[in-house]
């Protein structure tokens, strides 16, 4: 429990929720990151442009946060390049196959009370917890 940061987590969550709220009320879209990335690659015209703008905002967010005087977190990645590649392939393929990721199913889908998203969220949570158990506690990685 030593790293528990409840206030920052709730604040960050509220910002993510606000983003999803704006996406729906203003644009009529759900804020699922994997779907937005895939759409940005496959769509054209206005359908591509709003997605590219969203992704630009997402990628530039740390710079805006730093300019506003915030202390940026430093990502701590303990995995080697081969594992990064395997994990990236699994997440890329899996999110498209399952029609969403932690944001599309885990936030927007649950907020919409979608059964698909409840099942997907339960599944990827269980799969991730099992993967961490195996890699950390059985393999010692």
């Amino acid at each position: 429990m030593s790293h528990f940061t409840p206030v920052a987590a709730l604040q960050g969550g509220a910002l993510i929720g606000t983003s999803a709220l704006l996406c729906w009320v203003l644009l009529g879209r759900t804020a699922g990151i994997s779907g937005i990335v895939a759409g940005a690659a496959q769509a054209s015209g206005a359908e591509r442009n709003w997605r590219l703008a969203f992704l630009a905002g997402l990628i530039l967010a740390p710079l805006v946060f730093a300019l506003a005087g915030g202390a940026l977190p430093v990502p701590e990645v303990t995995r080697n390049p081969a594992m990064l590649v395997v994990a990236g392939l699994l997440v890329g393929f899996g999110t498209r196959m399952g029609g969403g990721c932690t944001s599309g199913h885990g936030v927007c889908g649950l907020a919409r009370l979608s059964w698909r998203s409840v099942v997907a969220t339960g599944t990827f949570m269980a799969s991730a917890v099992a993967t961490v158990f195996v890699t950390r506690h059985l393999l010692g990685l």
Binding site: V77, R79, M83, L84, V86, A87, G88, L89, L90, V91, G92, F93, G94, T95, R96, M97, G98, G99, C101, T102, H105, R116, V119, A120, T121, T123, F124, M125, A126, S127, A128, V129, A130, T131, V132, T135
Partner: peptide, 16 residues
């Protein structure tokens, strides 16, 4: 597909 996709995605998520 929903289940398999979410399971694959979760495995990648947990790996890194």
């Amino acid at each position: 597909r929903l289940i398999r996709g979410a399971a694959l995605c979760g495995a990648g998520w947990g790996l890194v």
